[in-house]
Nucleic acid binder design. Structure first.
Lengths: 201, 201
DNA sequence: CATCTTAAATGACAACGTGTCATATGTCAA
DNA sequence: TTGACATATGACACGTTGTCATTTAAGATG
């Protein structure tokens, strides 16, 4: 987590810093990003960076968390829009992510093509944060479980794991192969179809 | 790919080098590994390392590829053992991976908890190498597709993508949460059950 | 055997990145 | 004005990387 001094920063300066951070993580993935670049681009002395963040990772996860918050709103919005149909929500979310533009797109691309466990875990919170039971229950309540072939909450949890696995993998494929929106969506829909009806005859 | 000089090395020296590489990548994930450690441990001068490998990644992927080759044999063996039942094969493979011991285990753990797209892509070849059509067809021929709810080869390809996604994700979870073998297998089987019967009512 | 040629080995080095720390500066209350 | 605390600053020690000029080794050839 960013240090208190970061939050104490005058908005203007903080924005400048955030932009520099974002720029760097849009340029290259986490492991290749350099603090030197960030401070140069934000025009702050090197020591200051460490006044605000623990290290590179800290800055990265700050950005990621902001993104996850936006995703959570989006997910609730879509769930509502599709009357709790989680499959439709996933498809719409997928489409939203892969059609992101400009800097956001590059950030996401670097993010998805370098999905370490920690990053994935954090990003997965977009859908529920299934570690925190309370949040999960709240999430489940927005889902129309009538549509789902499950018999208890545990199965719902595993169903979510399956869906997020496949979603992430499909996003990664879309980014890595630079698929067109149409092609990517088509592929993902096909996978969802298979998932819905079951893999076994 | 390693350079020719690597393959020209007398076996003994090559083994020493491979062991040093393996040791380093078992200690820490790719991004944290250091060539300095490798050359120190292999007792070769720094310049020599670059005589054999392009860079860190090159050495890492060499090791990974060796692993993938072993996996491919294993997969064919298991497929045969279970009469082409891909679900049973997956479960057995899952169990094999998470119960790996000692250095291999650490190598795999670092591998799975830091699954970039490239690593995943390479590891995925354990199951077919579904980019090369010929290999894929050979793989498919070993699978009993009678058991599967698919109507053409394209659907089989997507089915494989789904299964490998879920498999990888489950392995990652097992490593990250340090699940016992029993617990991990139980979870994975549950997911396979859901996949088989379908997610939609 | 002497010589030439090509392959491989070696380690010093420049370039770069990281995190720290002693010092300077700013702020606010007493 | 002073003291106390928060923040800013940038030089620096340390570690890592990839290169390259120089040696050394291994054959081949006459």
């Amino acid at each position: 987590m960013p240090k208190i001094t970061f939050y104490n920063l005058p908005i203007e300066k903080r924005e400048k810093l955030i932009n520099a951070v974002k720029q760097e993580f849009s340029r290259v993935p986490l492991t290749q990003a350099s603090i030197s670049n960030i401070v140069k681009s934000a025009r702050i002395p090197r020591g200051s960076f460490y006044q605000y963040f623990e290290d590179k990772e800290d800055a990265f996860f700050y950005l990621l968390e902001e993104r996850v918050k936006r995703n959570q709103s989006e997910v609730y919005f879509l769930l509502n829009k599709y009357n709790g149909d989680i499959f439709e929500m996933m498809i719409a979310f997928f489409e939203k992510v892969i059609t992101e533009q400009d800097e956001n797109r590059n950030f996401l691309k670097n993010l998805f093509l370098n999905m370490t466990y920690e990053v994935e875990h954090e990003f997965g919170r977009s859908f529920n944060g299934y570690e925190a039971n309370q949040q999960f229950i709240q999430f489940e309540s927005k889902v129309n479980t009538e549509l789902l072939h499950i018999s208890n909450q545990e199965e719902f949890k595993y169903l979510m794991k399956i869906l997020t696995s496949v979603l992430l993998r499909s996003i990664i494929e879309a980014f890595s192969k630079e698929l067109s929106k149409e092609e990517a969506v088509r592929n993902f829909k096909l996978e969802i179809t298979l998932l819905k009806r079951g893999l076994k005859k």
